[in-house]
Amino acid sequence: MSIDVPAPEDSTDPLQPELVEGLARVVAVEGRLAWLEPEQTTSCGGCAASGLCGAKGIGTTASRLEMRRFPLVNDAHLAVGERVVVGVDARALLKASGTAYALPLGIMLGAGGVAQWIAGSDGITMATMLAGLGVGLLAARWGARWLGARGQLAPRFLRRASAGETCRIE
């Protein structure tokens, strides 16, 4: 299976867009690829690994971090177990949030508003909003494909994490 991995960029270039940084751990190295697993944070912004408050999203899919593993070109010769700092373009994060959440929500509420205005019945409004949510999710899928094709959703390797580096979402 071929994996589309973006080429690493020079993280010291001052003209690069602002990045949102996060910590990840190398869990496997396969040829030129390193597989990274993001470190989960808790609702207080601290590191779940430190067991600060135990609010780790119990029972949620995203709390199973292996589902969020991602590949990077291993030009930095990373070894399994190393902690690294990765970054995504801040504007891409906003576009992704808008695509995944705002677009379906907007279409759903718009559909509900029109249904309420025309029919004025709770049942019809509910059904229309469900249909609107479905359409919105399809629109989100197209939007995500468009963003993905432009390589905007891929994290970049920035640097190796220092020993005491915390895993706040920053």
């Binding site: 999203g57 899919t61 995504v88 891409a92 994060l93 989100a140 995500a144 994290p155």
Partner: peptide, 28 residues
């Protein structure tokens, strides 16, 4: 929350990798 996670994951795995950090926080 589970539905949102599954949907975002199905709709776009890269989006899920990027935005998954927020979803467990919402449960609590």
């Amino acid at each position: 929350v589970q539905f949102t996670e599954m949907t975002v994951r199905k709709v776009s795995p890269p989006l899920f990798q990027m935005l998954g950090i927020y979803l467990p926080l919402i449960t609590t």
